[in-house]
Amino acid sequence: MTRWGLGRGGGFFLVLVALPLFGLQHWVVNLLVFVLMYATMSSAWNLVGGFAGYPSLGHAAFFGIGAYTMALMFHGDVLGSGYEPFIMLPVIALVAAAIGVPIALVSMRTRADVFAIVTITFLFMVQTLAFNLRSLTGGSQGISLPIPPFDAATFERPFYYVLVLLLAVAMLLTFGALHSKVGLALVAVRADEDKARGVGVRVTGVKVLAFSVSVGLTAMVGAVWSYYESFIYPQFAVDPLITIAVVLMTFLGGRATLWGPVLGAFILEAGQQTLAYRLGGSQFYLIAYALVFLVIMLVLPRGILPTLEDRLRMRRRAREVDGAQTPAVELLASDEDKVALPHGGRP
């Protein structure tokens, strides 16, 4: 399983690295850049929302914080153009984490729904600040960043590869969460926080760690985005739709899985770009998006991967039982298996 998983991961990233070398058209690479952005952010959100079960609705605020930090670093002459901004990404992650820690400390004292409320309120507050602090952010006029001095023919490539790297980091962290004590602690928090605390899990530390790592990654994506766009406005940098897209992708693919958020991002972002293109700037786009969301929530509340996995497991079990001619006594002994059988046992 691990070797197969390693091969799958290696193969996926090999394809990602090789893709732009095949002379893809600009709009395709541009689409991939956005897909990678959302895949990274969904994987990051998954650490908090999926594993720990704290549905943050404020991640878009940290995306915006990353974007504006990048812009302000340029304006404060901390940064030169070229590749330098990419090297500063970890600093931006630290800034976002520093803002995220107190918020997590306070809001995670309560239940998941209050946490969601605090984070969404934080999102709107950051948006208001981005509009109002004109001297810093330029208000609704927006703020400009230097245009990256990359060759026009391969303009997207540096951004693309940085995002591939960020996605790799996010997925490695998720892999770590799946195979480590920290991850186990997060799952315990989701299952029953009080019991987890009772058996000695350091609940608060684990939650805050997951949140700050998650928002740090999100802020780095925001920073790359702002450099890529070279001009940012409050309504796009701090956009509730970013939050909702990230959450939706994670839910579609499957919460608390390694590949779920990535799969969700590849399906939805590609679909979203098509929808936005087909329906233009019109508001039918918003309605279509909301409907897709509602249908996913109602039809696939657990996401694609967990549902598929269950189906596969059931089929495998059924086959094993049929092939081995298991004695009836053994069948009766394993209650769990009996429940999982699709036909309720052999005829």
Binding site: I287, Y289, A290, F293
Partner: peptide, 8 residues
């Protein structure tokens, strides 16, 4: 999502 639907 309902909020987005109403907004749209």
């Amino acid at each position: 999502a309902v909020a987005l639907l109403l907004e749209g």
